[in-house]
């Protein structure tokens, strides 16, 4: 009993030390090494079991390079960007976090902050990269915030995630912002060489004034793709 207590106390102390270290250092080296080891195995597991699920319904054809090219062709990248194509191989385990791992990384030119596209438009942004894999923070993650513009009114707002398969919440800066159901949301974007470019579709307005706020307007928007059924993703690695 005393031995068990000692073991638990030591492990709890080690855990707390790890938490403090990570909060202070935010060092990604351990995670990168781990991802380089784990991602190839996850990719194999996904390839084997995908035929049973929704992620790769046509996995036999999917493994055919010609069909994979068709999948990629459905994703329209803005002109002037270098791209890399990856496949979702794992998902984050925490409650309603919307984070997935893809099977391409630094070796294919992927960098932090790169925009990630699915058929339809923007679905996320790269938050961590290792040699052969990268972590994508999806737009529906509670920690994701993307500057957006609603069309046709061109009003500016911030789209934040509300959970893996939930609609986006868009906070408009102006209380008089004009928006209607089925209006398109596009990214505000930036001129950075490796960030999110402007005017990428990100969702469609579904609900007006979906939450009470003291100032501005809040609306709901459906993302361009179902986050639980993502398979092939296109990463905009660099503006040429």
């Amino acid at each position: 009993m005393a031995r068990t207590r000692t073991v638990v106390v030591v492990l709890v102390a080690a855990s707390l030390a790890l938490i403090l270290w990570d909060l202070r250092a935010s060092d990604q080296t351990l995670r990168q090494v781990s991802a380089d080891v784990v991602a190839p195995v996850q990719r194999t597991v996904t390839s084997v079991f995908a035929p049973f699920g929704a992620w790769a319904r046509q996995v036999e054809e999917f493994s055919d390079p010609a069909v994979r090219s068709d999948e990629v062709a459905r994703i329209s990248a803005p002109a002037g960007w270098a791209t890399a194509t990856g496949r979702v191989v794992a998902a984050d385990i925490a409650g309603d976090r919307a984070v997935v791992t893809i099977d391409i990384g630094r070796d294919e030119g992927v960098r932090r902050s790169n925009a990630v596209l699915a058929p339809g438009g923007l679905v996320g942004q790269i938050t961590a990269v290792s040699g052969q894999s990268a972590v994508v923070l999806l737009v529906t993650d509670p920690g994701s915030e993307v500057g957006v513009r609603v069309l046709p009114s061109k009003e500016i707002g911030v789209a934040s995630g509300q959970g893996m398969d939930a609609d986006l919440r868009v906070d408009f800066l102006s209380p008089a912002a004009a928006a209607s159901p089925d209006d398109a949301l596009v990214t505000l974007g930036s001129t950075a060489a490796d960030g999110i470019p402007p005017d990428l579709p990100i969702g469609t307005v579904t609900a007006l004034d979906s939450a009470p706020v003291a100032s501005g307007r809040v609306i709901g928007a459906r993302p361009v793709a179902g986050m639980t059924s993502l398979e092939t993703l296109l990463v905009l690695t660099e503006r040429r």
Binding site: A14, A17, I19, D22, L30, R31, A35, T127, A128, L137
Partner: peptide, 10 residues
């Protein structure tokens, strides 16, 4: 922890 975007040690 290593495969998640959360804090290491949690």
């Amino acid at each position: 922890d290593l495969s998640s975007v959360g804090t290491l040690g949690v």
